[in-house]
């Protein structure tokens, strides 16, 4: 219908002038209109097309697959309704993975962000070789995750690992890092912190540099210490950035897979996908991988993916609420 109405409108202005300019005059208002209406959409279309193809479609298709008894290889995949979800909710290994994910997430995110804040605060002053420090912060993040995990797994190695050698030196018993829940979570959280602390510190640093210096000067005159300034000025002033990093870090930590996979590969082939012999450090993403790509149970893995998605939304929402209430000392 709109097309029909628009067409005469486009037709109305022409007073056919003579000569060759006639065609241009006739089309240009129509074209102009089309341009104004369509072009903005055309410009943003590539993103939305890609997003539709690689974001929305997989999301919906995953939901569709999760309602089937879908084996990756077989050609017949019967519809089974919500059976996969029903089975999932009573699957102890799924909830074990959910617990591990949360535990590793908290163990890595909280110290990581606190440390990043302190690092950024230390760098947020006139320093020699500033660029060098900032690049150094980012270096661990540039390293490939595989390289980081392989190196750290050797450091945490039971027989020849450096960490155990140091423990031995101070007279503490050697730890079989992969064997227990707590020790494996600490080891994996360490790897994550190594990669991401500097990255978050840089983001904080950028935010801190936008805080007016006068406030600090006034605080200094009033006699506030550096720690008091961090708590009383910096944190409240960069709160939006902190909220951003908390959300991004939370999402990231819900998706951890490479670290436990490669860490478990130090034990045996089988313990890699199960995240330890007793699933001590199997995360949700790793559980999904085990079901989908080792057992080829695609329907079940898809159901797990959707529940995982909902869990991420829940946890991110919770964190957002908590951080938003965190005010620092400014308004006290």
């Amino acid at each position: 219908m709109p097309v029909v109405r628009r067409a005469p409108a486009a037709e109305s202005p022409p007073h056919p002038p003579p000569g060759e300019s006639r065609t241009r005059a006739a089309t240009s208002p129509w074209r102009h209109r089309l341009d104004r209406l369509v072009s903005p959409y055309a410009y943003i279309a590539p993103f939305f097309l890609l997003f539709a193809a690689f974001g929305v479609f997989p999301l919906i298709y995953t939901a569709w697959v999760s309602l089937h008894d879908w084996n990756l290889l077989s050609s017949a995949n019967p519809f089974i309704g919500l059976d996969n979800y029903r089975e999932l909710f009573s699957d102890g290994y799924f909830w074990n993975a959910a617990f591990n994910t949360l535990s590793i997430g908290v163990l890595s995110a909280a110290p990581q962000l606190a440390l990043a804040l302190v690092l950024a605060h230390l760098l947020n002053r006139p320093l020699r070789a500033q660029t060098l420090f900032r690049i150094t912060l980012l270096l661990p993040n540039v390293t490939s995750v595989v390289a980081v995990v392989v190196i750290f797994s050797q450091l945490f190695g039971r027989d020849f690992g450096l960490v155990n050698a140091l423990l031995d030196l101070v007279g503490i018993d050697r730890v079989y890092w992969q064997a227990n829940v707590a020790s494996s979570h600490v080891a994996i959280a360490t790897m994550i912190m190594w990669r991401w602390t500097g990255y978050n510190a840089l983001i904080y640093l950028a935010a801190m540099q936008a805080v007016p210096r006068e406030i600090y000067e006034a605080a200094t005159i009033d006699g506030a210490s550096a720690a008091r300034q961090l708590w009383g000025i910096t944190i409240p002033m960069i709160r939006p950035t902190i909220i951003f990093t908390v959300i991004v870090t939370t999402i990231g930590s819900m998706q951890i897979i490479a670290e436990p996979l490669l860490f478990g590969a130090q034990v045996s082939n089988g313990a890699a996908t199960t995240g330890g012999t007793d699933r001590q450090f199997q995360t949700l993403a790793l559980y999904l991988y085990e079901k989908g790509f080792r057992s080829f149970e695609f329907g079940y893995a898809s159901a797990a993916a959707w529940v995982m998605f909902l869990l991420v939304v829940l946890v991110v929402g919770f964190n957002y609420l908590v951080v938003r209430r965190m005010r620092g000392g400014l308004d006290v």
């Binding site: 392989v150 034990v267 045996s268």
Partner: peptide, 12 residues
């Protein structure tokens, strides 16, 4: 020796 097959420690 408690060294799983196909692990880096195995190779060592």
């Amino acid at each position: 020796a408690k060294i799983g097959a196909w692990t880096p420690e195995w190779n060592t």
